[in-house]
Write a protein that binds this DNA or RNA. Structure first.
Lengths: 186, 186
DNA sequence: TGGCTAATGGGACGATCGTTCAGGTAGTTT
DNA sequence: AAACTACCTGAACGATCGTCCCATTAGCCA
């Protein structure tokens, strides 16, 4: 419990987060394959050695980026679910709209998220972070809804991945009937 | 229309396919990030320059690998659907078993497929190949079933991706209720 | 048999990579 | 003020990368 925060550490932490943000931008633009100490440093506007100082290796940098990204995803999808619920039977509209947004304006971000997701499949130490947002969401629903909710989340993932290889992003209108069918109770 | 096939070209084509197969093995083991001319050549047991001779660039090699992989996926999932259908209400068992297999013994292959899938999201020239197996399968079903089938395929994709970040692969027993719910008609 | 072409493979070049190191700066503590 | 610590950064090293070049081999055709 520190009362007087160290100004040096504060600046260091700030730069660390800038580097993480820059890494995410690089992944959005060029994919995980485009992440090097130098490209990230250039993107962040810092010297190359700064990325090696704050992250002991490139792997550490990707790990930190995934953790940061997963936290954002969790809160984001949390509010999506919340909004969809509050709109009741209009939930499909809400979800379809958000999917269209994720596949349109935010397409790069969506690709980055799934690339980091697959990275977690190969690196066990990343899995807790990648799984966290799934766990958070699952804990939101009633216990007897768990299976239908797992199906819902799986369907969302599948629609996003398939939407990423369309020549032009699917519109909310195209997605709505599929989402509605996915949400329809049995 | 050649009547007498050129023996040289035949050997060349054979080696070309060996290189593609080796590339897929490298992706299964180390991911797309591990694909270099040298690693692929070593895996295939050919000199380094052989991969640059048969493929004008690394991109071409990955493109050819994805196309080959997508063809296999299409036929594979085709028979899965066929078997699931013939077993009627027992289709969920069939599908759950195949998912467990894809996430267990064939886990590396499944990761490779999704990595190539995401590669297609970034390279437009790859999208037709990546989409082909979706199209083939969609053409299998009756027109009025299209939406439920799209939901089914999306759910499969989502279950596979989420299963890839589990610490231990989910068993067929764990997957069966989810698959059954996914298949249940509304 | 002698040209012709496709496939093969050894070697090397320049570029870029991850990472290290040592010197320099600025904030904190005594 | 002095000692200490944390952050910063330019330069460089060795490894590895994609790709090219050129000599050699082997199957084809006239």
């Amino acid at each position: 419990m520190k009362m007087q925060p160290d100004g040096r550490k504060a600046r260091g932490e700030k730069r660390r987060e800038e580097i993480i943000a820059a890494t995410l931008r690089v992944i959005e633009r060029d994919g995980v394959a485009g992440v090097t100490h130098r490209t990230v440093a250039t993107e962040a506007g810092v010297p190359t050695t700064s990325t090696t100082y704050h992250f002991s290796s490139l792997d550490d940098l990707l790990v930190a980026t995934l953790i940061s990204c997963a936290r954002d995803m969790a809160t984001e999808v949390y509010w999506m679910i919340d909004r969809a619920r509050s709109r009741g039977s209009r939930g499909a509209d809400e979800v379809a709209g958000l999917l269209a947004e994720a596949l349109g304006p935010r397409r790069g971000r969506t690709m980055a998220e799934y690339e980091l997701y697959l990275l977690a499949a190969r690196k066990p130490e990343l899995r807790p972070a990648a799984r966290r947002w799934l766990d958070v969401l699952t804990s939101m629903v009633r216990h007897d809804d768990e299976i239908s909710f797992r199906v819902f989340l799986a369907g969302i993932d599948g629609l996003l991945i398939q939407g990423l290889i369309d020549d032009e992003p699917p519109s909310a209108d195209e997605l709505r009937p599929v989402v509605a069918y996915l949400l329809k109770p049995r």
